[in-house]
Amino acid sequence: MPENSTLPIESGPAPAEAIKPQSPGQTADAPAFDVSNFSLWYGTRQALHDVTIQISKNRVTAIIGPSGCGKSTFLRALNRMHEVMPGTRMQGSLKLFGEDLYRPGLDAAEVRRRVGMVFQKSNPFPTMSIRENVLVGLKLNGIRDRALLQERLEGSLRMSALWDEVKDHLNRPGVSLSGGQQQRLCIARALAVEPDVLLMDEPCSALDPLATARIEELIQQLRLRYTVVIVTHNMQQAARCSDRTAFFYLGRLIEYADTRVLFTSPANPQTEAYVSGRFG
């Protein structure tokens, strides 16, 4: 591949810059994902129609839309998780930092190490301790270096704001934690392999308001180092913690704009109907 098409990956922007909310209309964002004319079928049923979108690096992008509109499908296409199901087929192009993720010969596992994922229902591995849960991705990908493992363990648990709560009992089973802690453990597990992007599919839908608040806070922190794409049913959540928002409807991307713009003055009448709760 041509060297100039790849973007160097920074270890993270300076904190001061990142914490400051993005001003609307700012266009200097570097694209992480560059998706064009992307369509996807489950068997004969088309779930995504010609989606074209650029997802910015080091930003939080929210995906909203009514149930069944293809949010999860789109998210899972971003790390090729849909390939797990037999009979799926895609068309179009999907690039991460300029590189085609569907290029023949590129291993899906390789893609998924770069693009981490957190699921709706927290799913720490039931047979593993907190420590093992965080490190399983590294260990099973062949990393043995003790010091590195220890560093990643602490680093990702700190990053997911769980370190202080669990540092004294890392050997307890992961499933012994509370629901919110389990979800943060899953985030730590995803972060431990140092992905560039973190995908989250309704990460708070099974959590109480307090635990939700903690995760949202955490998402703000994550933006410092990662590109985050979050699917949510909760429009307040999208408004609170995302920089840009994409509205999907019936498998199509209807509108994509800065969050503030999309929620205050949507261009499309369908978007307006949805964000104002007058939908369906």
Partner: peptide
């Protein structure tokens, strides 16, 4: 360099082995 423009990590060599 790997497809994403980073130095090839031991993990990505492991990936080749693990596909096998």
């Amino acid at each position: 360099m790997d497809p994403l423009g980073r130095p090839r990590s031991p993990a990505s060599q492991a990936a080749r082995g693990s596909r096998w």
